[in-house]
Amino acid sequence: EEERTFTNEEEARKAKKEAEKRGLRVTVTKDGTTWRVRIG
């Protein structure tokens, strides 16, 4: 499991799409101005 943080919503969405392409489970949460993308 890996967690990545982004300040840019577009980049967070891109990371989510890429992980889904690899067949991984992805959770995206917004924490104030930060987007957290949890993969795995």
Rank of each mutant, 00 (worst) to 15 (best):
Ile39Arg: 00
Glu3Phe: 08
Ile39Asp: 01
Lys14Gly: 06
Glu11His: 05
Val26Asn: 00
Thr29Asp: 04
Val26Lys: 00
Arg38Gly: 04
Arg25Leu: 10
Val26Phe: 01
Lys30Glu: 05
Ala12Gly: 01
Ala15Pro: 00
Thr34Tyr: 14
Arg4Met: 15
Lys30Tyr: 15
Ile39Trp: 06
Glu10Cys: 14
Thr33Ser: 12
Glu1Gln: 09
Gly32Leu: 02
Ala19Gln: 03
Thr27Ala: 05
Glu18Thr: 06
Gly23Glu: 01
Glu20Leu: 07
Trp35Tyr: 06
Arg25Pro: 08
Arg22Gln: 09
Val37Leu: 09
Lys14Gln: 12
Glu2Arg: 10
Ala12Trp: 03
Thr29Ser: 07
Ile39Leu: 04
Glu3Gln: 04
Glu10Arg: 11
Val26Ile: 02
Arg36Ala: 03
Thr34Trp: 11
Arg4His: 14
Val37Cys: 04
Glu10Met: 09
Thr29His: 08
Lys21Trp: 06
Glu9Trp: 15
Arg22Glu: 05
Trp35Phe: 05
Phe6Leu: 03
Arg25Val: 11
Glu3Gly: 05
Glu9Met: 07
Lys21Pro: 00
Phe6Arg: 01
Arg36Phe: 13
Val28Ala: 01
Lys16Ala: 15
Arg38Val: 14
Arg13Glu: 13
Val28Gly: 00
Glu9Leu: 11
Thr34Asn: 14
Lys17Ala: 14
Thr33Met: 10
Ala15Asn: 03
Ala15Phe: 15
Glu9Val: 07
Thr33His: 13
Glu20Thr: 04
Thr34Phe: 14
Glu1Ser: 10
Thr33Pro: 15
Leu24Gly: 02
Arg4Asp: 04
Lys14Ile: 10
Asp31Arg: 04
Gly32Val: 02
Gly23Tyr: 03
Glu3Lys: 03
Val37Lys: 00
Lys14Ala: 13
Leu24Phe: 10
Leu24Trp: 06
Arg22Trp: 07
Lys17Met: 13
Arg25Ser: 10
Ala19Glu: 02
Glu9Tyr: 15
Arg22Tyr: 06
Arg13Gln: 14
Asp31Cys: 12
Lys30Thr: 15
Glu1Leu: 12
Ala12Tyr: 05
Arg25Thr: 11
Val37Met: 05
Glu18Phe: 05
Asp31Phe: 07
Leu24Asp: 03
Lys21Thr: 09
Arg4Ile: 14
Phe6Glu: 01
Thr7Met: 10
Arg38Pro: 01
Ala19Cys: 09
Thr33Glu: 15
Lys30Asn: 10
Ile39Pro: 02
Ala19Ile: 07
Phe6Met: 02
Thr33Gly: 14
Arg36Pro: 11
Ile39Thr: 05
Val37Asp: 05
Thr7Asp: 13
Thr5Lys: 05
Phe6Gly: 02
Phe6Thr: 02
Lys17Ile: 14
Arg13His: 14
Ala15Thr: 04
Arg36His: 11
Glu2Ser: 10
Ala12Ile: 02
Gly40Ile: 15
Glu9Pro: 07
Thr29Trp: 13
Arg22Asp: 05
Glu20Gln: 07
Lys17Ser: 12
Asp31Lys: 05
Val28Phe: 05
Lys21Gln: 11
Val28Ile: 15
Thr7Gln: 09
Arg36Trp: 08
Lys21Leu: 12
Val26Trp: 01
Lys14Asp: 09
Glu18Asp: 09
Glu3Asp: 07
Thr34Ile: 14
Glu2Thr: 11
Glu10Leu: 11
Thr7Arg: 07
Ala12Met: 11
Lys16His: 08
Arg25Phe: 11
Thr29Asn: 04
Val28Ser: 00
Thr34Met: 13
Glu1Tyr: 15
Glu10Ser: 09
Lys30Pro: 03
Lys17Gln: 14
Trp35Ala: 12
Phe6Tyr: 11
Glu2Gln: 11
Glu1His: 12
Glu20Tyr: 03
Glu9Gln: 06
Arg36Gly: 02
Arg38Ile: 15
Glu20Ile: 07
Lys14Glu: 13
Arg36Ser: 04
Thr33Ile: 09
Thr7Pro: 08
Phe6Ile: 01
Lys16Trp: 13
Arg13Pro: 01
Trp35Lys: 12
Glu1Asp: 11
Gly32Ile: 01
Lys21Gly: 11
Gly40Tyr: 15
Val37Tyr: 00
Glu1Phe: 15
Arg13Leu: 15
Thr33Asn: 15
Lys30Arg: 10
Thr33Phe: 12
